[in-house]
């Protein structure tokens, strides 16, 4: 199913075009095993961008540079047209769901979910909190310790925590990889609905091409730290999938 970015429909033609929600401009960072090399990529507002590529392609690094987890050695990251390369992570308003979830082990599931919600906003957030619990199927986990939940449950809690954060850009890094197909589809449907209601911009890194095909407006591909294609056209996606699976890119 294709999604049209809402702003493309609603935009007033007299106004200057909105700056991209996120833009990587000539970003490079080499950590030895992983690297991104001179990446330039624009992410329009309310767009859902999928990024695929083999292990070690630099997909995670690309997200971490924009989310404030790592500093690039060269290049800049722009957020709504503003240079955020040196901004602290709390000012970027990008909710990041990393591969390992990074749930806080000393807090229970509920405390993790509400971590980003300020105390004085919690009452007004009750409805959203309930929606997240139901939508992600984690209502039964709220008082459980983080150590006692499964990998798939932890991924959904990490996703819920990011959705409740005060951010309009969401980065997902293999954040549904531990879910079975049925749960993955349910989470995908919930995310699509949540994205529409809350006008989120999403970047999703995944090895699951079928999932990206289903959810993303556009798919970019990376290999060996470089952007291979910023817009794998829908018609060509099946070809790309076969290339990926044939190992040409690995």
């Amino acid at each position: 199913m294709t999604h049209t970015a809402p702003h493309l429909v609603l935009r007033d033609s007299n106004k200057a075009p909105d700056p991209p929600a996120i833009e990587w401009r000539g970003v490079s960072l080499d950590l030895g095993e992983f690297a991104v090399r001179d990446i330039s990529l624009r992410l329009e507002r309310f767009e859902w961008l999928g990024i695929c590529g083999p292990t070690g392609a630099g997909k995670t690094l690309l997200l971490e540079v924009a989310a404030g987890f790592r500093a690039p050695t060269s290049g800049v990251v722009l957020r709504d047209g503003r240079n955020i390369t040196k901004s602290v992570a709390e000012r970027r308003r990008i909710a990041y769901v990393p591969q390992d979830g990074l749930l806080f082990p000393h807090l229970d599931v509920r405390q993790n979910l509400l971590f980003a919600v300020l105390r004085n906003r919690r009452k007004t957030m009750t409805n959203l909190y309930e929606q997240v619990l139901l939508g992600l199927g984690i209502a039964h986990l709220t008082h459980r310790n983080i150590q006692s939940i499964s990998g798939g449950e932890a991924q959904r809690v990490a996703l819920g925590r990011a959705l409740l954060a005060d951010a309009d850009v969401l980065f997902l890094d293999e954040s549904t990889s531990a879910l079975d197909e049925e749960t993955k589809q349910g989470v995908g449907t919930f995310l699509q609905q949540w994205r529409k209601e809350h006008r989120l911009t999403i970047v999703q890194v995944s090895h699951d091409i079928a999932e990206l095909n289903r959810l993303a407006d556009r798919i970019a591909s990376m290999n060996a730290g470089r952007l291979v294609d910023a817009n794998v056209r829908r018609a060509a996606r099946s070809d790309f999938v076969s290339i990926l699976h044939s190992g040409v890119l690995t």
Binding site: G68, E90, A162
Partner: peptide, 8 residues
Amino acid sequence: TMSRSLGH
């Protein structure tokens, strides 16, 4: 860093 990216 995760805590900070969540706004703290």
